[in-house]
């Protein structure tokens, strides 16, 4: 394939990854920003979203579209409730101590993976997208008669992939509006700035934490539902997704929502584009080192201001 169309294809693929990543990472960023804990089980909530989408799709009849909508409603709510329960039974009792939270969420990760393995199984299972038509994309060239459009071999995407990008954008906008325009969002931001002060003002910080943990997990689950028609639901799919969202959150600057979104786009797109120029594994090595070096020379992340 020629360079131009190739680059465009890589960018389209990068955009799908970026969209899902932004959604998932904003959940992680929310919990990190408000609660100051690293949730290692975040990837498992993403996996649970995908797995539940499969279950829902198989229980709900009436075609792929209805099943998909049902999954998009049920899975995040169920996962969010589960996460809030975990917060109240475990994290609250260890007082959100950063190190103990890491161990506890690793424990949670094992439990979730094993239960999924026992109930759902070890297979990667597909979920049918609500709609999916291949869209061949045109490219232009300067021919004898000036600018002309043509359809290069392989330059295409699917309507569902475009939908993923749009849906993620809408959802992230909704989260942003929720945080800035509603009272609940105001309370969360107040807790983020100073939880002691928030307590003094009568904000039920514990309930806020449970809600934030639940919402964060719900966003991961929603990302899982969105991606499952493109990839498949598998009980180990959370690991790589977790790593990527970690990177995104840190690069974006801890607790900075806007930074997280920009970083997700950056990481997602560069993953696609670097693979155009280098052999794939070498590209991964370079991208990984690049992330490390960005942090080395800008430890607060691209958009973080808080010196550490």
């Amino acid at each position: 394939m020629e360079f131009g169309p190739y680059l465009m294809l890589a960018m389209l693929e990068g955009a799908v990854l970026a969209a899902v990543l932004a959604l998932m990472a904003s959940g992680l960023s929310l919990t990190f920003g408000v609660m100051r804990v690293v949730n290692v089980a975040h990837g498992e909530f993403y996996m649970l979203g995908a797995v539940m989408a499969w279950f829902v799709a198989h229980l709900v009849g009436g075609g792929a579209a209805i099943a998909f909508i049902a999954a998009a409603v049920i899975a995040p709510l169920a996962v969010g409730a589960m996460a809030a329960a975990a917060d109240m039974t475990i994290l609250k009792r260890i007082d959100y101590d950063p190190e103990r939270t890491i161990v506890a969420t690793i424990g949670l990760l094992y439990v979730i993976q094993q239960v999924t393995l026992m109930t759902y199984g070890a297979d990667a299972r597909p979920v049918e997208p609500p709609f999916n038509s291949r869209i061949a994309l045109p490219w232009f060239e300067w021919g004898e008669e000036g600018l002309a459009l043509y359809y290069p071999w392989g330059l295409s995407t699917t309507s569902y992939k475009l939908f993923v990008i749009a849906a993620a954008a809408v959802l992230i906008l909704a989260v942003r509006l929720f945080m800035t325009r509603t009272k609940a969002g105001l309370i969360m931001r107040a807790t983020q700035l100073d939880s002691e002060m928030a307590t003094a003002f009568g904000i039920p910080v514990e309930r806020v934490y449970a809600a934030v943990f639940g919402i964060g997990a719900g966003l991961a689950a929603l990302a899982g539902v969105l991606i499952v028609p493109v990839q498949q639901a598998h009980y180990l799919m959370g690991g790589d997704a977790l790593l990527l969202s970690f990177i995104v959150v840190i690069i974006g600057g801890l607790g900075s929502m806007a930074g997280t979104i920009v970083a997700a786009i950056l990481i997602g797109m560069s993953d696609g584009i670097i693979s155009v120029f280098f052999s794939p594994t070498l590209a991964k090595i370079l991208a990984t080192l690049l992330v490390a070096l960005v942090l080395v020379f800008r430890p607060q992340g691209l958009f973080g201001s808080r010196p550490r």
Partner: peptide, 10 residues
């Protein structure tokens, strides 16, 4: 570790 493949096919 790859999960999406379209970008390699060109």
């Amino acid at each position: 570790t790859e999960t999406s493949f379209t970008k390699y096919f060109p």
